[in-house]
Design a protein around this nucleic acid. Structure first.
Lengths: 137, 137
DNA sequence: CCCTATTTGCGAATTATTCGCAAATAGGGT
DNA sequence: ACCCTATTTGCGAATAATTCGCAAATAGGG
């Protein structure tokens, strides 16, 4: 029998497999857009608030998920699947993914000019605009 | 007699010149790193909390300042001087600026592949790493 | 099946942000 | 310089977001 994806993700990093962690993982897996902690709390009513926050932090540390910051100021989380970024509508908050980010050049350029850094471990790139239906009105 | 920079910024966008606005502007101008609303509240004790939040929102709408999202999850604000980005230490939160971001290529590539968007109005790019002194330990 | 380290749920504390409304005030007109 | 009014502020309190401490529950190795 096949091991589920969420079990695999947890087991691979030596984390205990618990109900709350599976629930949070699925909440993230089920949607396309990045979720806030509160959105997960409300969707997954069975899991306690504090646990959701703790689990999300854990996921980020373990590399299972990552934080995403959109304009709103709320931290959002999404599974760390692969290297994609977001194009967010500043009016309706619709999110579309895009790929093909060549931050390497930018990073190496930045590093070359940096006085205090010699390692870059991650980056965040977000594009903002108006989606077609919002720009029509 | 010369008009101060903060008066100019406010007047140019048709905003009233008030004490709180000047204080918040100076708080942002005086530091190099982006500040949270709370940091400004605590530094500028004379200005009420609610006013600080309102003023920051106003500045963003007016284009005087912009929001910056670092890992922490707190929204930070900085003056909208020119197009620079940040290299942030994930350990100690030290921030260094860098220039030379060529997001245009990335944006146009993203737009070309987008199904729902045809305008990009802004972007955010943040690099994260370890600063030299943190990576030593 | 036990045993223990880990994780959870709960309740409550903190912290961040927003709101409503009356008092204060900026700045145009005179 | 002085009114007048629309705007902005401060205050107090509400709301929302996040974190904490601790006792009860439980995952998973032996």
């Amino acid at each position: 029998m096949k091991e589920s994806i969420e079990h695999k993700a947890l087991r691979e990093r030596g984390l205990r497999i618990t109900q709350p962690r599976i629930v949070v993982y699925r909440a993230l897996a089920d949607v396309k857009a990045p979720l806030t902690a509160q959105e997960i709390v409300h969707s997954a009513r069975l899991v306690d608030q504090a646990t959701v926050y703790r689990t999300l932090e854990l996921f980020v540390e373990a590399g299972i998920a990552r934080k995403v910051n959109l304009q709103s100021g709320l931290v959002r989380y999404e599974l760390n699947s692969d290297d994609h970024h977001h194009l967010t509508c500043t009016r309706c908050e619709r999110v579309e993914d895009f790929r093909g980010c060549h931050v390497e050049k930018i990073s190496s350029h930045a590093l070359a000019h940096s006085r205090f850094f010699s390692t870059i471990t991650s980056h965040s790139l977000e594009l903002f605009g108006l989606c077609n239906s919002c720009s029509r009105t």
